[in-house]
Write a protein that binds this DNA or RNA. Sequence first.
RNA 1: GGCGGCGUAGCCAAGUGGCCAAGGCGGAGGUCUGCAAAACCUCUAUUCAGCGGUUCGAAUCCGCUCGCCGCCUCCA
Length: 476
Amino acid sequence: MGLRIHNTLGRQKEEFVPLRPGEVQMYVCGVTVYDLSHVGHARSALVFDMIRRYLRFKEYRVRMVRNFTDVDDKIIARAHQEGVSPRELAERYIEEYRKDMAALGVGEADVEPKATDHISQMIRLIERLVTKGVAYPLDGDVYFEVKRFPSYGRLSGMSLEDLRAGARVEVDERKRDPLDFALWKRSKEGEPAWPSPWGPGRPGWHIECSAMSMHYLGDSFDIHGGGEDLIFPHHENEIAQSEAITEQPFVRYWIHNGFVNLGAEKMSKSLGNILTVKELLRHHDPEAFRLYLLGTHYRNPLDFSLERIAEAARALERFRNLFDEADRLAAKGTPPPGGDDGLLEKVARARHRFEEVMDDDFNTAQAVAALFDLAHLLQAFRSKVTQGQVAVGPFLLGVGELLTLGRVLGLFEATSKPPLSVPPELRARVETLVQARSDARSRRDWATADRIRQELAELGVSVEDGPEGTTWKLRP
RNA sequence: GGCGGCGUAGCCAAGUGGCCAAGGCGGAGGUCUGCAAAACCUCUAUUCAGCGGUUCGAAUCCGCUCGCCGCCUCCA
């Protein structure tokens, strides 16, 4: 079975066939760097990170480009406000974005280009558009003439008439059509400017993605992604610009992720209802957040809720308990003999199911369900290992497979809460108390044992007595 | 106004014509354990916003109604 992807162009699932066998070229719209990124940006980044991981699991060689928009009105306005240069402001937030993504476990793209490093490529594209007669200069600006591109509106599913009917853009009498959009903007006093055939100015927003994607990936490439708010006008305009020049299909598969809502409304800066990634990670485990996100299909809206993330953290604990158990059994050495009781075949079936549901337009909710089922299976088997009924080897193999599959989704990078976060002096004190409690227990002095457990609880430590002895961990 | 999407258990959420409607959280009972925790087992939607229709058969297709959201302006 092959991968099927929902293509925004056509609004249906299609079999995924890359341009070159075994290779995938993808471009993802990144962020405009004028402020800290929020949970909505995080969702988009995590979705495309998951897609890239899965494509790699399918043994595709993936080349991914994710851009930074580092010149635009908001950056300029913000920089003026803070009394720094737009470049300085952009650099700062690029740095912050990279830190946030790393903290979320989102891998770096193969290329992370900045718009301002590609001005000459943009100018060349604009020149070609002017030469072809699909764009026209006007007082130092250059506009794309939408009427010259017959399939304009195809991605968003709207006709020019539909678009004109609902147009909320300010009518600029100079433009040939209200829907014509800027490729190049004449710069005003005090704004960053680059020399061009039309005078000093700066690029319009849409042209940068055409320029950078075609520069790094070619005139036609496989996947272009971003949040669903980019469908119109951003991606619609990219198609118009690019295809007007090359007269070839720009992108084969358009993938758009759904929004994060907060309080029944889209999380966005203009509405003011945002939660930054930094704020999120101050209180929550990044893997719990990832598990929470994966529980909802990437195209569906997600109602953000800290309570749901806390639930995901509890669910994640169950996997981690299993991994701890596997570590303990693996460390014991000299595996006792025994059968596998059909476990490995069930593990293979779980893998098959995982791949099948992921092949269906990245159904991570189902994939996660397969992971939970596999974990249950392994836990049940582990009870039998402990009782000496079956061998430990198949159990460890099964856990290894669970880890492999989870990591395809970016989960289980940390198999347990990092014990490193325990300060050494606290660790020593806890170890002493745990030992004292074990001594008391071996004397069957339950009163003392319980008292010590209470003492440990006050330190935020919980203890568990198992057949292999007592273990402890920090409670969140 | 135009275009599009959503409404599934206490909560979250998959499923888009036919095996018992995934999975998670929460809850109930049981096993194990000195107790606890963890883990395991069982149970927790005769029903998919409502009303009609198509079909041998619909949560899934069609129509209408109600409620919610997004895009059409910068936006992941």
